[in-house]
Design a protein around this nucleic acid. Structure first.
Length: 674
RNA sequence: GCCGGAGUAGCUCAGUGGUAGAGCAAUCGCCUCGUAAGCGAUAGGUCGCGAGUUCAAUCCUCGCCUCCGGCUCCA
């Protein structure tokens, strides 16, 4: 038999023909791999037999691809457990997802928490039994026979054999056949576990998979949920079970801790704990009220944003919250966006709608008089509150609300100015986000969607201008094909927060519709009338959403310049209150948000309260301080500094706030309780 | 909207077919204190809303309301 020459992780190897990847890796001393990538393309199981000249890269479990294989294999175990326990269960799809996997089932009744526990126990049995995942190639008819009682699988087979529909990668790349995976119980498996040797389960699957269920180191079922078949609400709702799986028990524990941390940081929870905002049911879902402390933070954010926009050459405008239907007919919102709008109000023969966007109002300001090229670029800015109908099930605190305020601008410019405006705008966006302490950015260039208005040539032009701006910014970006708004290609800026979650914030859009719909024009230098270009942009996205993201990013411990209460004054005994009031007055004169805690509590309790409210500075005074004309700091970190002269302390606090430093002074280590 | 889960004091939660309890918060009193909870007392509930079953419902049944998780990643 001729030998086969391969490279494995860039090292040449010669193996006998017919050797499987598992044999090859074992020979090469690579033990951690659970699959390989061949020739930088397809992933393969360890049972796959490579051909002469193949370049193999081993895929360890503790990599994104390795975890996806692990999770996908765990999903199969889940499906087997469900079919074992629920006779007649139909199973649909079970892919790996970020941080886990799911599997969708069609069952008689939804799963109860007890069911999930039983399923999890059954999965542990299957894992301990050490079933192998055996790949098998079948022709479509054979596949239909195997899954004769599985309508969802039959549908998948039909779609696969009908050709790669909608770009789906449904057929194994090597040929027209379908592949299935058999779970085969090994003799070494525990008979006591009740999983007999022999064929235990078969699923339609592209693979690859782990060699054996025993190689699933750690998993947990997380929750159940309803999910429409193929994600379409016209289809039957299936019962989905979500789970997670990791390369080690430790990795699972780290993941669970991250989830607990995310829950601890949830802005809805912090909003109540820190008395920032609430959603009174009397007002309605998705409509927040801002309490004084939340209002203070919001004002600090808005004031800073206003000042930045002023420096960047924006002009400030205000437009009403409702407008006649005719305005939204002209803008196209009623034709294209009616599903997202609040219903109309009739009065005096006219129909009014709450505005879902601010652009039409700003366009009318542009059109209020004739415009010259000398007016351009015209940058109009407004904290514009908009109302959008969101289905009740999708509301989520401040991040998905029905009423919210955009830091919205529309820039009207000449075609020649477009690329330059976009470039400087992108730099402006990043600068502003950095000032709020966000550092990890990713951009997306979202191109023409399936459902769009305008001419493809215009879209191409807009996309090209956005691309120029992205290239000039040096920002890493990916193209999100077909993700543009119906009226505009756009750049979306995403950030990653302190615990690694990704959020979409800013959006920059080149509007291809409105200037024409509103018949906008300006007089050019050559005395001709031309149509301006229009850029929509919101940097926070929405003030509410940005606020929520910051709150979660900082886990409620906002930088001093944003903190709702910047200083809490704490007397050692009640007799020190007047002295503290005097110091508080000096701080207030410097613009500091300060409270004097004159409650009947003991000093220790006051410190605890201020600490729980995440106040950046506590200023404490007792007899020693008062006699010396001094005061003592306790920082949010728990560090303290005693006997600081009052003048010095006031300056330190005021300067710390003015600096907009992101971490309060003297905070070095995380000496945090709770 | 759809599927599931949950609604008991301001908050976090316990509880039972015989009309309810804890901790924190609140109010009052005592204590006057040097860096994360001093002590005591008081007050606070139509057990989400409506109907049904029952001698009796916060508890069981049905409907509604609100909130939470999911409905995007494609064998």
């Amino acid at each position: 038999m001729p030998d086969v020459r391969l490279t494995v992780d860039r090292t040449p190897h010669v193996v006998p023909a017919g050797a499987s990847v598992g044999d090859v890796l074992a020979g090469a001393g690579i033990t951690a791999a659970i699959a390989v990538r061949a020739n930088s393309e397809q992933l393969h199981d360890l049972s796959w037999v490579p051909e002469d000249g193949d370049r193999l890269e081993s895929v360890p479990m503790a990599t994104p691809e390795g975890r996806a294989i692990l999770r996908h294999s765990t999903a199969h175990v889940l499906a087997q457990a469900v079919t074992d326990l629920f006779a007649g269960a139909k199973f649909a799809i079970g892919p790996p997802v970020e941080n886990g996997f799911y599997y969708d089932f069609d069952v008689e009744r939804p799963f109860t928490p007890d069911d999930v526990e039983a399923i999890e126990r059954r999965m542990i049995e299957i894992i301990k039994a050490g079933q192998s995942f055996a790949r098998r190639r079948v022709d479509p008819d054979e596949a239909r026979g195997l899954f004769a009682d599985q309508p969802y699988k039959l549908e998948i087979i039909d779609r696969a054999t009908a050709g790669a529909v909608e770009g789906e990668e449904t057929v194994d790349a090597a040929g027209p056949d379908i592949t299935v995976y058999d779970n085969v119980g090994s003799k070494g498996g525990r008979a006591a576990a009740g999983v007999a040797p022999g064929l235990a389960f078969t699923d339609l699957c592209r693979g690859p998979h782990l060699p054996s269920t025993r190689q699933i180191p750690a998993f947990r079922l997380m929750r159940t949920a309803g999910a429409y078949w193929r994600g379409d609400e016209k289809n039957r709702m299936l019962q989905r079970i979500y789970g997670t799986a990791w390369e080690s028990k430790e990795a699972l524990a780290v993941h669970l801790r991250m989830l607990a941390e995310a829950e601890r940081r949830d802005h809805r929870r912090l909003g109540a704990e820190l008395d920032l905002f609430s959603f009174p049911t009397e007002i309605g879902g998705g409509l927040a009220v801002w309490h004084p402390k939340g209002g203070a933070v919001r004002r600090a954010m808005e004031d800073y944003s206003r000042a930045a926009h002023e420096r960047a050459g924006y002009e400030f405008v205000v437009t009403p919250h409702i407008a006649r239907s005719t305005l939204f007919e002209t803008s196209g919102h009623l034709q294209w966006y009616a599903d997202g709008m609040y219903p109309p109000m009739e009065l005096e023969g006219a129909t009014y709608y709450p505005k879902p966007m601010n652009c039409p109002g700003h366009i009318l300001i542009y059109k209020s008089r004739g415009r010259s090229y000398r007016d351009l670029p015209l940058r109009l800015f407004e904290f514009g509150t908009v109302y959008r109908y969101e289905k009740s099930g999708v509301l989520h605190g401040l991040t998905r609300a029905r009423g919210f305020t955009q830091d919205d601008s529309h820039i009207f410019c000449t075609p020649e100015q477009l690329a330059g405006e976009l470039t400087s705008l992108l730099a402006f966006v990043i600068g502003l986000l950095r000032d709020f302490g966000l550092t990890d950015f990713e951009a997306e260039l979202a191109t023409r969607p399936e459902r769009y208005v305008g001419e493809p040539a215009q879209w191409a032009e807009g996309e090209a201008a956005l691309r120029v701006a992205l290239e000039a910014s040096g920002l890493a970006y990916v193209v999100a094909a077909g993700e543009g708004a119906f009226y505009a290609p756009k750049i979306d800026v995403h950030i990653r927060d302190a615990i690694g979650r990704r959020w979409q914030l800013s959006t920059l859009q080149v509007d291809l519709q409105e200037p024409g719909r509103f018949d906008m024009e300006y007089q050019a230098a050559d005395n001709t009338r031309r149509r301006p270009y229009m850029i929509h942009r919101a940097l926070f996205g929405s003030v509410e959403r940005f606020f929520a993201i910051l709150l979660e990013h900082y886990a409620g411990a906002l930088p001093a310049w944003l903190a709702p209460v910047q200083v809490t004054m704490i007397p050692i005994a009640e007799r020190h209150v007047p002295y503290l009031r005097g110091v508080a007055e000096q701080l207030r004169e410097r613009g500091v948000r300060v409270e004097v805690d004159d409650s009947a509590e003991r000093m220790q309790k006051k410190i605890r309260n201020a600490q729980r409210q995440k106040v950046p500075f506590m200023l404490i005074a007792g007899d020693d301080d008062e006699t010396a004309g001094a005061i003592s700091f306790r920082y949010r970190s728990g560090e303290e500094r005693r006997g600081v002269p009052v003048d010095e302390a006031v300056s330190e606090v005021a300067e710390e706030i003015a600096s907009r430093r992101l971490v309060p002074l003297a905070v070095t280590a995380g000496a945090t309780h709770e």
